[in-house]
Each structure stands twice: as C-alpha cells, then as structure tokens.
Design a protein around this nucleic acid. Structure first.
Length: 545
RNA sequence: UGGGGUGUCGCCAAGUGGUAAGGCACCGGGUUUUGAUCCCGGCAUUCGCAGGUUCGAAUCCUGCCACCCCAGCCA
C-alpha cells in the first residue's frame, strides 16, 4: 500500500532528470492496438506508464496504434478507454491515434526515399520472406534495392494513389540484408491495403508498419520514455535507425520490461480470442477471463489490480506470478470495504423443534470492524437453512461445526444442538432436527454454553433463492499451453448453485459482499439478482492427520 | 550452429565490492461469535555452475550451463 516503487525504469528516469536529459516533465504513452480487450498484463503497463508520469509530474497519452485496418475496430477503442478509466487512470486530452499522423508519416517516408534510405520493392511476399534469409544465414539483396530515387518517389506516390493492387509493392528501408538482427534486413515500412480504415475511411490505401509508425509517433508526441515489453528489444535498433534518419528533433529512448505472466490463465490476445471463439467462456467479459472486463464482472476492484501490479514490480525477468498474490490483493481490499452478509450455497434444512414463535428479529452489523457501515436485520425462525458442508455425521477430530449431539452457534443468533438426523433410504442427510437455547441469544447470552464453532445460516421463509456462480481458476494447469488449451481447461471453473441469500443483502444497493465464512461475492452486472464469487476466504482449516 | 535478453527462497523482488531487504505462499503461537481479519514468531551461511581477482564478491574478470524472444506486407 505504501512504499513508492523504485524499479529500474524509475531509477533510470530519476537519473535522466538529474542529468537534465528530461527537462519538461516525464511524458509516457500507453499504445494499445484496438484489436482486442485489455487484460491484466496490460494493466501492468498502464500502471507503469501512467504511474511514472504521475510520480514525475508529467502526463500520459492514450494512443491507439491503429495501423492495420484489417484487424482493428471501434468496438475495441471504446472498450479500451472504458477499461483504462475504470482502472483509475486519466489521459485528459492526450488521446491520440497513430492514424492522426498518417500525413506526417507519409512525408517522413518520402524523406527516407529522397536520401536513398528507402525503396519500393516489387517482390512478392513469399520472395521477400525467402530473401530475408534465416536466423543463421544472411539475406540477399532485393533486385529492386537500388532503384533510382526518382523511380522510388514515383512508385511510392502511385502506391498511395491506389494504382496498384494489394501486395504489388511495399516500401522497404535500405539498411543491411546481412545484419545478424533480422529486423534490420530491409524491413517493410509501408504496405498496400485496399481496406477502409475505421478512422480515416478510404483516405489511404497504404498503411505504415509498426516499426516505422511507433517511433515517429513517440517522437512527435515528445514521449520522454517509451516503455514496452521485452519482445521489442530486437526492434530497438530499428526504432533508433528510423529516428536517426528522418528530420525529427526528438528521439525518445525505448526501454523494455518483461510482460506479466499469471498462473492458471493465458495472457495472449490470440489465445483469449480462441477461448471466446470456441465457446470455452461466455465472452471477453466472462468472469473467468483475465481481461479487465472479466475481472470487473468477477467483482475484482481496480484498487486490487493496481496493488497487484505494484507488488509484482517491474523488471526484465521472465515471470509467472502465482494466482494467490492476486487473490491476496483482492481480499485485502474487500476485507476492509465489503459489507458482510449470509448466504447458504448448498442448503440443508434445519428445524428448531423447541421454537414455536412466529419468528423474531435479530440485529447484525454490516461489518464487524467498521460500525459506520451500520446494521441490518435478520429473521430467526423455526425453519432455517445451513450449509450442507457444515454438518458431518462422523466428524473428524477438532471439528467445530455441527454433528449429531453437538452444539454450534448460529452467527448473530442462538446456539443450537443437533438432536436428530433425518436421512433418506440411501442414508443421505435430508434434514436436521435441532433444539435452540433461548438464553443464548447473540449479544445477551446468559446460557454459559461455549460451543466450539459458529456457522452461517439463512431463515427458510425469508431467505431469497437465487443463483450464485462459483468461479474457480479457468485452467487446471499452472502454465496452460497453446497446443493443449482445451484439455487444460478446468471443468469446475464455473459451478452454478441454487443458493439462499439473506433478504437485506438482496435489498442493499451495494454490489460487493462478503458472505461470511465463504468468500467475497459480487452482484452480476447483467443479472443483479445473481452473484458471482470473486474469491474465497482464506481457509487454513484442514482435518488433523 | 546467428542476434537479442534473463538467471537471488515454492512465486514475485531488493541488492550496483563491505559481508543476502520486503511481499505472497508456507509453518508455529496469541486474540476472535467468520476455522476470516488482526497480532507475534519462524522461513536463502547463500545468490545458475566452475574457476579467478580482492583483506573482502550476489555484485568485478574468464569459461561453461539453462531458459525466453526474433525469420508477418501483425503489433
């Protein structure tokens, strides 16, 4: 919660400020491609980029990297903005799109051509691939590599005007086909795509590639620290090459950090997409998804995600963080803020044989440590439901719940004793007959009885039957593989329960609750009478050996 | 077999030549009308391995080893 992070990137920034390398404040950017939903891995980047700008008195651009009209759409740009805002970060009026710079990008490309540093290559895609060589063998020069400048200029202009079909030509950087870094073997800068763009419509039929676009946008926006993930490390020489060879007076440093890995889930857009397409989940916002939309629907708070990102840190080490850290952050946040309530997920009927009143009202605090949250009323009556798991015909040693002849306290209510167990032909427990101790009422207990345990309960008549979705990890394998995605799915990642919930919880405007002894739950966005389990409570009980 | 990275406790992660922070998890114990929370305590003689430099090395040097990324007209 406290401790300002001081990772290697922040150390670098402090050094830059001390050196006078950055004068006007730190400017960063979060540059998502609008072709999918944001996930918790993006949250790490968002927290980093917006975080450092905030800490060092600067600002952050939310810049959509929309250079590939075939894959991108407005649906995603809206969702991404909603997610970033939900996480708690603000870009103010620094909302941009790579496509805002298409004109300038084109001019910079012309500059490169004029200097003989870019050329129009008319090889086919396949020929370019072959010509690039392999990891261990150098590439070979394109036959078009030394086209005269005037011809390149003319061809590029005609590419833009729509004269050629897709794939007929590309603009390539003139660097080094023998470079050990494959990204430097005359990378493609522009390709022809006769496709309407979601923002520029049909204004363009050529679109710039990432490597050409990203660095220039960074420079034009005065990004003082261009933070990206490790897989772009190999692209840094190209990032620098482009900026060194065009007439732009700003050159941001690209600094790479490792992406977030999380156990029992996947973090690539491709795999997430596959889960949605194959119907393994209900959508991008399925509460089992690691997407921000999914986590939100699950009941995870933005604060918990921010805290998680802070605790995870920023380094260059590959990492796979245990799910229990995320769960810890969620519990920590909800423990302090969530109202308590009672719900029985797997009801077992209990009849209080010596109670013949019509029912009586009990009072319970919404939060045991925070009286400001107030109280709510519960009804104690002759027929109740308790959790099936809170009764054991043959209890293990140290068992603190209910069993034949044993006593237990009903949370906020009375102490009861199990006198009789009703079973069916198969021996399955159908109902419990118990007696209660009238002088053991919570808060005014004069019975002198000291039952070992406390269990939750809901009045049978008052309790509201409703659906509770009990979520668990999406995969049963810590590091699910792309090849075995379907096989790795956890068949119990979603269990539907017909539960009974106390009426005050149903009536409350609150969304998130702790159902005592069970976990944290959240009213579903789309179906507010149903609850999604966010996370269980920590449970250190295990039967003695 | 080319290039770029990374290797510190089960998982994250500090440490930048002066003798291994912290968190999560885990294991004790205390409080408790949630087997929760909270509170105390424990948890790396050792930093991928092997040599070397040094009074002193996780930190410097040399050589190995392991893992990750790169051959889209994706980002």
């Amino acid at each position: 919660m406290s401790d300002q992070p001081n990772d290697f990137i922040r150390q670098r920034i402090k050094q830059d400020i001390a050196d006078g390398t950055v004068s006007g404040g730190v400017v960063t950017r979060f540059p998502p491609e609008p072709n999918g939903y944001l996930h918790i891995g993006h949250a790490k980047s968002i927290c980093l980029n917006f975080g450092v700008a905030e800490e060092f008195g600067g600002y952050t651009y939310l810049r959509f990297d929309d250079t590939n009209p075939l894959k991108e759409s407005d649906e995603y740009v809206d969702a991404i903005q909603a997610d970033v805002a939900w996480l708690g970060f603000h870009w103010g009026d620094h909302l941009t799109f790579a496509s805002d710079y298409f004109d300038q990008l084109y001019e910079f490309a012309v500059q490169l051509i004029e200097q003989g540093k870019a050329y129009v290559c008319s090889l086919s895609g396949e020929e370019i691939r072959v010509g690039r060589g392999t990891l261990t063998e150098p590439g070979t020069d394109s036959p078009y590599r030394d086209r005269p400048v005037s011809e390149n200029l003319d061809l590029f202009e005609r590419m833009r005007s729509g004269e050629f079909p897709d794939g007929a030509h590309v603009l390539r950087a003139h660097i080094d086909m023998a470079s050990p870094n494959i990204n430097m073997r005359d990378p493609v800068l522009y390709r022809i795509r006769h496709a309407p763009h979601q923002r520029t419509g049909d204004a363009w039929v050529i679109y710039p590639m990432y490597d050409f676009t990203h660095c220039i946008c960074d420079a034009l926006e005065g990004i003082t620290h261009s933070l990206c993930t490790l897989e772009f490390e190999d692209h840094r020489p190209l990032y620098d090459w482009v900026l060194d060879n065009i007439n732009v007076n700003f050159h941001p440093p690209q600094i790479e950090f490792s992406r977030l890995g999380l156990e029992y889930t996947v973090m690539s857009k491709r795999l997430l997409n596959q889960l949605v397409d194959e119907g393994s989940v209900s959508g991008w916002d399925d509460p089992r998804m690691p997407t921000l939309a999914g986590l939100r629907r699950r009941g995870v708070t933005p604060g918990a995600i921010r805290e998680f990102c802070r605790r995870v840190g920023v380094t260059k080490q590959d990492n796979v963080v245990e799910m229990n850290l995320l769960e810890f952050c969620v519990r920590q946040d909800l423990e302090a803020t969530a109202c308590r309530g009672m719900a029985v997920l797997d009801p077992l009927k209990v009849v209080i044989t010596n109670y013949d009143g019509a029912g009586e009202t009990l009072e319970a605090p919404w939060h045991p440590q925070n009286a400001e949250l107030g109280v709510r009323e519960l009804t104690f009556a002759r027929e109740l439901f308790i959790e099936r798991a809170d009764f054991e015909l043959e209890p293990p040693r140290k068992y603190k719940r209910l069993s034949p002849g044993a006593m237990v306290r009903l949370r906020y209510g009375f102490i009861i004793r199990c006198d009789e167990v009703i079973t069916d032909d198969q021996g399955a427990v159908m109902e419990l007959r118990c007696s209660y101790f009238p002088d053991s009422r919570s808060g005014s207990d004069t019975s002198g009885l000291k039952p070992k345990g406390v269990i939750h309960w809901v009045s049978a008549e008052d309790g509201k039957p409703t659906e509770v979705r009990v979520y668990d990890r999406l995969f049963q394998t810590p590091n699910p593989g792309a090849a075995s995605l379907a096989d790795d799915l956890n068949p119990k990642s979603l269990v539907l329960r017909q539960a009974v919930v106390e009426p005050a919880v149903m009536a409350s405007d609150e969304r998130r609750f702790q159902f005592e002894r069970l976990g944290y739950f959240c009213k579903d966005d789309e179906r507010p009478d149903a609850f999604n389990r966010t996370v269980t409570l920590r449970d250190s009980w295990r039967p003695p050996a």
